[in-house]
Structures are given as structure tokens and as C-alpha cells.
């Protein structure tokens, strides 16, 4: 009797030692709902995170991503697209997940470093090779005959950054004269022949369809277009003044909890702040926030004079209400 017990104990011990962790591994599905130009970033990042999570826990994490105009994506989540994490273009869209969707706490931005923006970017001007129209700054975009490509601020986060960058330039140029600023931005919008719903759509319009003289673009998107989508066909023009774009990220608590993904979703976002995550961001032309990585990629990003949304526009809530809500300045000056 004792002999058989001993045998069972031994077999159990050997089994316990030799059974690989993978025998108990589970598959985890995670949905990241993001904005338009982050496709390449998260393609790389998801692979890295899956490998990291596998090593750490033994679990197989499969991250699916959905991309589109930031505002549109936020509305989709509120309407039931059950994202575990949201990585959107601007804080106002994430605020909506709290205010309208009750999906995340109001103080979501405090949960992660740098106001929950693991990487930043800015708005630059992408022109065709040789800069045939001689575009050097925002001033040039309001000239007659200049065709400007930018997406629709009603649906695209990138477009809102573009609009505010132009607005900030005009305000400075006209010493805060709102009427003249409005007129300036109005003239610029008159030069826009097509309003795409998202930044990637505008890139397609400019790069692939050959429409327009200048694309107002995320810096990362401009680099991508220049180095990967149309090598040697485009040049980046850094305007004299632009805006610091801080795309935020958050766990969508309600859906992550529903899927039992709270831990992995948080780990996914935390991983964006690690050296590995920051390296991936930098390689995809996003400005890293981790100092060591930022220093390493310092030369990649041109020095720019950047205004901040909080300082220049009183934060996203105010900027949204003033410029992009129904009846805001965009509605007032944009004529189809």
C-alpha cells in the first residue's frame, strides 16, 4: 500500500516538473480600437507584446486592432464595439468614453504616465518632391491655387490637430485677432478639395491618388509616406509653428472586465511605456516619451516650435466646444 502511494507521489511530482507551462496556457483575445495611422505601429507592437506576454505568463495573446477616424472610433466603442483598450488620437475622444459611454472612470488620464500619452507627435506639411509650389509655412497654404489635403475634423482626430495647428499659427500671426484668424483658416479650408474621414484616407488621397500640393499630416504619417509609401517622391516641410499632439491610451474598463481581460489590457498599455514599447513607437516615427529612447532617436525628429493644447486652447474640452462642436468655428467657416 505504502509502495503504491509512493509510486503515485513520484509520478505526480515528475509530471508536475516536466509538464510544460504551455500545457496550461490559455488563449487571450484582446481588441485595441485605435485611430487611423497607427496600423503599422500596432502591427509591430502587438507582435512584441504577444511574445512578451507569452514569456511572462505562458498565455497566447491575440491582439486584434480596429482603425478609423478617432472620433468615429470613439462613437463605435460607445455604441458597443467592445474594445479592451482604446488608443485614440486625442483626449477629447477618450473623454467621451467616460462621459457618454460610462465605460471608463472620469480620471482615466491620471492612470498612466504623461497624461496617458505614451508617445507624441506633431503636425507637419508633406509636399511633392522639389516642393514645386514653394510651400514653406502655413502662410503658403492660403494662397490661391494651392490645393491642401486634410481630413474632416468632425471625424478625424488628426484633422483636429491640423486645424488647431493652423489656428495657433494664425493667432500668433495676427496677434490674437480672432476675425483675421478665422479668415485665415477659412481661406485654408477653401483650398481643401476633398475631406477624407481619417488621416489614412488623406494620405491615400495625396500619395496614391496624386491629389493636392500639400498634405497636412501627422509627423509619423508624413515619415511613413516619405520613406515607405513613396520613396523619394515627397518632402517634409516643418512649419514655423505647430502643435504637440498627445494621442492618449486607456483600458476600456467595462469591456475589459466583461472579457476578463483587465490584467492583460493594463499590461498591454504598460508595455507601451517600456523601453521595448518606446523603441517600437520611435521606429514607427512616433516621438517617444521615455527619455533614454527619446535621446536615442533625437536626430530622427526635426526640432519644432510646438504649442500645447492646454496652454494655447485651454484643453481639449474647451477646444472641442469652441471649434468642432456643432456651430463651432469649423462649421462657421467651412463651406462645402
Amino acid at each position: 500500500m505504502k509502495k503504491s502511494l509512493l509510486t503515485i507521489a513520484l509520478i505526480s511530482a515528475i509530471y508536475g516538473i516536466t509538464t510544460p507551462v504551455s500545457a496550461f496556457a490559455k488563449d487571450v483575445n484582446l481588441l485595441n480600437v485605435s485611430y487611423d495611422p497607427t496600423r503599422e505601429l500596432y502591427q509591430d507592437f502587438n507582435k512584441a507584446f504577444a511574445a512578451y506576454w507569452k514569456t511572462k505568463t505562458g498565455d497566447n495573446v491575440i491582439v486584434k486592432t480596429s482603425h478609423g477616424g478617432s472620433g468615429k472610433q470613439a462613437r463605435a466603442i460607445i455604441d458597443g464595439l467592445d474594445a479592451d483598450v482604446a488608443t485614440l488620437a486625442l483626449a477629447y475622444d477618450v473623454d467621451q468614453l467616460s462621459e457618454k459611454g460610462k465605460l471608463i472612470p472620469k480620471d482615466w488620464q491620471k492612470r498612466l504616465g504623461h497624461n496617458s500619452s505614451p508617445y507624441t507627435s506633431t503636425i507637419v506639411l508633406l509636399v511633392r518632391k522639389g516642393n514645386p509650389k514653394g510651400i514653406k509655412d502655413w502662410d503658403d497654404l492660403v494662397k490661391p491655387g494651392i490645393s491642401v489635403i486634410t481630413p474632416n475634423p468632425k471625424t478625424s482626430g488628426g484633422a483636429r490637430w491640423n486645424y488647431l495647428a493652423a489656428w495657433a499659427f494664425a493667432q500668433k500671426k495676427f496677434g490674437g485677432d480672432e476675425a483675421k484668424t478665422k479668415e485665415f483658416v477659412g481661406k485654408l479650408l477653401k483650398n481643401v478639395p476633398v475631406l477624407d474621414t481619417g488621416a489614412r484616407g488623406s494620405t491615400t488621397t495625396f500619395v496614391e491618388r496624386g491629389i493636392g500640393d500639400v498634405l497636412l499630416a501627422w509627423e509619423n504619417e508624413a515619415f511613413l509616406a516619405q520613406k515607405e509609401l513613396g520613396v523619394g517622391k515627397f518632402e517634409i516641410v516643418v512649419p514655423s509653428l505647430s502643435i504637440l499632439a498627445e494621442p492618449p491610451v486607456t483600458v476600456v474598463d467595462k469591456f475589459a472586465k466583461k472579457h476578463g481581460n483587465e490584467v492583460v489590457a493594463k499590461a498591454y498599455l504598460d508595455y507601451l511605456y517600456t523601453e521595448e514599447g518606446q523603441e517600437i513607437a520611435a521606429k514607427n516615427y512616433y516621438r517617444p516619451t521615455l527619455e533614454s529612447v527619446a535621446k536615442k532617436y533625437e536626430k530622427q525628429f526635426p526640432k519644432s516650435n510646438l504649442v500645447k493644447i492646454d496652454e494655447e486652447f485651454g484643453g481639449w474640452q474647451k477646444a472641442q466646444k469652441t471649434h468642432f462642436s456643432d456651430g463651432g468655428t469649423f462649421d462657421q467657416i467651412y463651406q462645402k
Partner: peptide, 17 residues
């Protein structure tokens, strides 16, 4: 050519919409 391209692109966007 630009006008045609713009019209085509608008058509594409309308189709997407």
C-alpha cells in the same frame, strides 16, 4: 487631371460613406 482625380476620390469617399 486634378479635377478628375478629385471627383474620383470624392466618388470613392462617397462609396465608402
Amino acid at each position: 487631371s486634378q479635377k478628375v482625380k478629385i471627383l474620383e476620390r470624392k466618388g470613392e469617399n462617397n462609396d465608402e460613406a
